[in-house]
Write a protein that binds this DNA or RNA. Structure first.
Length: 248
DNA sequence: AACTCCCCCAACCGCGAACAT
DNA sequence: CATGTTCGCGGTTGGGGGAGT
C-alpha cells in the first residue's frame, strides 16, 4: 500500500519494525521528522512515532487488562473524561491507544449497562463534569484587610495563569469540608475567594494552621513598613486535590 | 466448507498546542 | 508579533480473524 509520493501506509512489516527499533535505540526517542531518513524507512514521521509509542516501545505491557486496571480506568475516566494520554499515564506499560480501544470496545459497554441496571429504565446518561488539570498559580498581589477584634487578616486570593516563579510549595489538601468547597469554587472558575487567617505577633508571619488549605511558602511575610505582603504565592496540586476530594 | 457478521485493534487523519525562525 | 513547522492527542476507520449459521 503506497500513498502520495510513494510513502508506505498500512500494516508494518517485521523488517520495518527492526529498522525503526534500531534507529530509536541509536538516536533516542524524539525528533520524529528525522526518523524516516535516519532509519531508512519509507514512512511518514507520524506513522513512525505511532508505531514506536503504541507497539515497539519495550516498556509496553501486552495482554488483557487486569480487573484493577479496568477499575482504575473507570475511575480516572469519571474524573478526566476522554483524556486518554492522562489516563494511560497512570497505568504503567499501557498506551493511550490501548486504553482508548479497551474503553470503546469493553469498558464503556460495561459502564453503560451498569448505569442502566442501577437507574432501571432511565436512558439518560449524565454529563461528566470534567476537572481539567492545568497550571495555575496565585497572583502575588493579594488584597487584604485587618479586623481588630478578633485579630484576623482577610486575604483575597486570585488565580493567575502560568506566571510561575521558583518560590512555590504545593498546596496542602484541605480536610475541612467548608475549606474543600471554598477552594473548589476557585478551581471551578470563580475569580477570587476570601480566606481569614489569625495574626501572629507584631512582625506578622503568614502561617498555615494544621490542615489549612495552604502551606507557608518560603519567605513570604507581612511588611509593616510598606503595609503589604512581601511574597505570597502558592501552587495548587490539582492532581492530588481532585484525586483525594472528588467522590468517584 | 463457504459465507456473513461482528469485534478488536493497529493505523490514519485532522486539529490544536508548542516550538522555531 | 507573524508565520511556518513539528509534536501530540483524540476521533475514526478498515482489515484481519473468530464466531455463528
Amino acid at each position: 500500500m503506497e500513498g502520495f509520493l510513494g510513502v508506505r501506509k498500512g500494516a508494518w512489516t517485521e523488517e520495518e519494525d527492526n529498522l525503526l527499533r534500531q534507529c530509536v535505540e541509536k538516536y533516542g526517542e524524539g525528533k520524529w521528522h528525522q526518523v524516516p531518513l535516519r532509519a531508512g524507512l519509507n514512512r511518514c514521521r507520524k506513522s513512525c512515532r505511532l508505531r514506536w509509542l503504541n507497539y515497539l516501545k519495550p516498556s509496553i505491557k501486552r495482554g488483557g487488562f487486569t480487573a484493577d486496571e479496568v477499575d482504575l480506568i473507570i475511575r480516572l475516566h469519571k474524573l478526566l473524561g476522554n483524556r486518554w494520554s492522562l489516563i494511560a499515564g497512570r497505568l504503567p506499560g499501557r498506551t493511550a491507544n490501548d486504553v482508548k480501544n479497551n474503553w470503546n470496545s469493553h469498558i464503556h459497554k460495561r459502564v453503560v449497562s451498569c448505569k442502566e441496571e442501577v437507574k432501571g429504565k432511565a436512558k439518560q446518561i449524565t454529563k461528566i463534569n470534567v476537572i481539567r488539570p492545568r497550571p495555575l498559580t496565585f497572583k502575588k498581589n493579594v488584597s487584604w484587610s485587618i479586623n481588630p477584634s478578633p485579630k484576623m487578616v482577610n486575604i483575597e486570593v486570585q488565580l493567575g495563569h502560568g506566571d510561575n516563579d521558583s518560590n512555590h510549595s504545593a498546596l496542602t489538601v484541605p480536610s475541612n469540608e467548608d475549606d474543600i468547597l471554598l477552594w473548589k469554587d476557585l478551581l471551578n472558575g470563580k475569580e477570587s475567594i476570601t480566606v481569614a487567617q489569625e495574626l501572629k505577633g507584631p512582625t506578622t508571619t503568614f502561617m498555615a494552621e494544621e490542615n489549612a488549605p495552604w502551606t507557608k511558602t518560603g519567605d513570604h511575610f507581612f511588611d509593616d513598613m510598606h503595609g503589604c505582603w512581601g511574597d505570597l504565592s502558592f501552587d495548587v496540586d490539582l492532581w492530588n486535590f481532585s484525586n483525594q476530594n472528588t467522590k468517584l
